[in-house]
Amino acid sequence: MIKVNGQKYDYQEKKLLELLEEQGHRPEMVAVELNEEMVPREKFPETVFHDGDVVEIVMFMGGGAR
């Protein structure tokens, strides 16, 4: 099991890019932390999860000051 944004998933041995696509995220619009370390976007296709990993996905939002 891994934990993604506080939710448990049976997702070990799969790749980060697969998770993002399955959850409907656009890789260019998110930042990802794996076990408290930022994952560079170019590493998304090769980053594999292992049992006990903790993933945080942060989405960029548009907007600005008024």
Rank of each mutant, 00 (worst) to 15 (best):
V32F: 03
G52R: 07
N35T: 12
R26L: 04
Q7A: 03
K15Q: 10
E22R: 11
M59L: 09
K3F: 00
P40W: 02
R26M: 04
F44G: 05
K43T: 11
Q7V: 11
K8S: 12
H50N: 13
G6N: 03
V39E: 05
Y9N: 08
L16F: 08
P40D: 03
H50P: 12
A65E: 00
E18G: 11
L17W: 02
Q12H: 10
L20T: 08
V55E: 03
E56R: 09
E28F: 09
M1N: 07
E21R: 14
L17T: 09
K15D: 08
Y11S: 08
K3G: 00
E46G: 13
I57H: 07
K14L: 06
E36Y: 09
Q12F: 10
V55N: 01
L34N: 08
M29N: 11
P45F: 01
R26E: 07
Q12K: 15
F49Y: 04
Y9C: 04
I2H: 01
M38V: 15
G63L: 10
Q7T: 12
G6E: 04
H50D: 10
G64N: 06
V48C: 09
F44Y: 13
V32H: 07
L16V: 08
P27M: 01
M38G: 02
D53G: 06
E46C: 04
H25W: 02
E21N: 07
G24V: 12
M1G: 09
R41S: 00
V39K: 03
G6A: 04
V30I: 10
M61P: 02
R41N: 02
R26F: 01
V55W: 08
E21V: 14
Y9S: 11
G24Q: 08
T47W: 08
G6P: 05
G62F: 08
V30S: 05
L16T: 05
G6K: 06
T47A: 05
V39N: 01
F44H: 05
R41V: 13
E46I: 15
P45R: 09
I57S: 01
